[in-house]
């Protein structure tokens, strides 16, 4: 039997060109969901096949790739995707946010401000922000085409009527460049402001749903709200127990079965960077200087 051999970054060049065309269209129409002929990938749908296809299509041999899941470089899915590209493309990989030229992410935007020339690739499970209000694709596409977003506001209205404030904590809808309402993928709403006027190119890939969308650099991204109930960021009211950061999104760690809890940075690279600079938190171990 023939040994199966694969192209650079796994996908064949024909497929990459198709995906690049979709990406270019997405960049040209910020926030608009471009249908593309998503391929079967060797990882399951729902595990980042959209992000992987986008990354595979834009990756060149000189790129440096970082992959995070839940903000961390060390979660199993992030490792698996990083190894996939190390193997199929032979590109350099890194955990450092500033050192990466391409960052693929699931559910977070790095804390370190992104710079020009970087590309942030989001893995997206459900690209349609109106999906749970209107299940039919034919109807939601018409709503986007006509910019009929009253239904989205009905949902926000209901939240306030019921809970006193907008009760959406992640995948919080945004309006891109004053036109399309977009789902930022299931990032916590804490990350929403980072999408606005961002220096990096942001690409979103949804494999199972076969959609790609984009936010070009320096594009206006506004979280939906009401004038008298403005969008607010949410963050646990605590410093990181390891690095003392007061400006980062935190993971809650259950430390024992008696209700013990502590909070640490969800962005592991950010946290390590701060600790290397000498910042400490209540639970931090002294940095092992010899550990290179």
């Amino acid at each position: 039997m023939i040994e199966a051999s694969y192209n650079f970054a796994y996908l064949d060049e024909q497929t990459k060109r198709m995906i690049r065309r979709a990406i270019l269209k997405a960049i040209a129409i910020p926030g608009y969901q471009v249908p593309f002929a998503s391929r079967e990938m060797p990882m399951p749908y729902g595990w980042g096949t959209g992000g992987v296809q986008v990354t595979a299509s834009i990756l060149g041999p000189d790129d440096t790739l970082k992959v995070i899941d839940q903000g961390s470089d060390d979660t199993t899915n992030a490792i698996s995707i990083r190894k996939f590209f190390a193997k199929t493309a032979g590109v350099a990989t890194t955990t450092s946010t500033p050192a990466a030229s391409v960052i693929q992410t699931r559910h977070r935007i790095p804390e370190t401000t992104l710079h020009e020339g970087q590309v942030l690739v989001y893995q997206v499970p459900i690209p349609e922000p109106l999906r749970f209000l209107e299940p039919r694709e034919t109807e939601t596409r018409r709503m986007h085409a006509l910019a009929e977003y009253g239904l989205m506001h009905v949902k926000l209205y209901e939240d306030i009527a019921k809970f006193g404030h907008i009760a959406t904590s992640y995948a919080y809808p945004v309006k891109v460049a004053g036109r399309y309402v977009m789902d930022p993928s299931p990032t916590p709403k804490f990350d929403n402001p980072k999408m606005n006027d961002c220096a990096a190119l942001q690409l979103f890939g949804a494999g199972r749903e076969k959609r790609i969308y984009a936010i070009p650099p320096y594009t206006q991204v506004v979280s939906l709200d009401f004038e008298d109930h403005p969008f607010t960021r949410y963050r646990q009211n605590a410093p990181c127990a390891l690095c003392g950061a007061e400006d980062s999104y935190l993971d809650e760690i259950v430390t024992d079965d008696r209700g013990g809890r502590m909070f640490v940075c969800s962005d592991t690279d950010y946290c390590e960077g701060r600790r290397a600079q000498g910042h400490t938190g209540t639970e931090s171990a002294p940095m092992e200087a010899a550990d290179a």
Binding site: Y45, G71, Y170, F190, Y249, S266
Partner: peptide, 14 residues
């Protein structure tokens, strides 16, 4: 099956 993947961040928000 993707429900097996971590959702720490979203769950934290909820």
């Amino acid at each position: 099956e993707h429900l097996k993947l971590p959702h720490y961040v979203d769950f934290q928000s909820e």
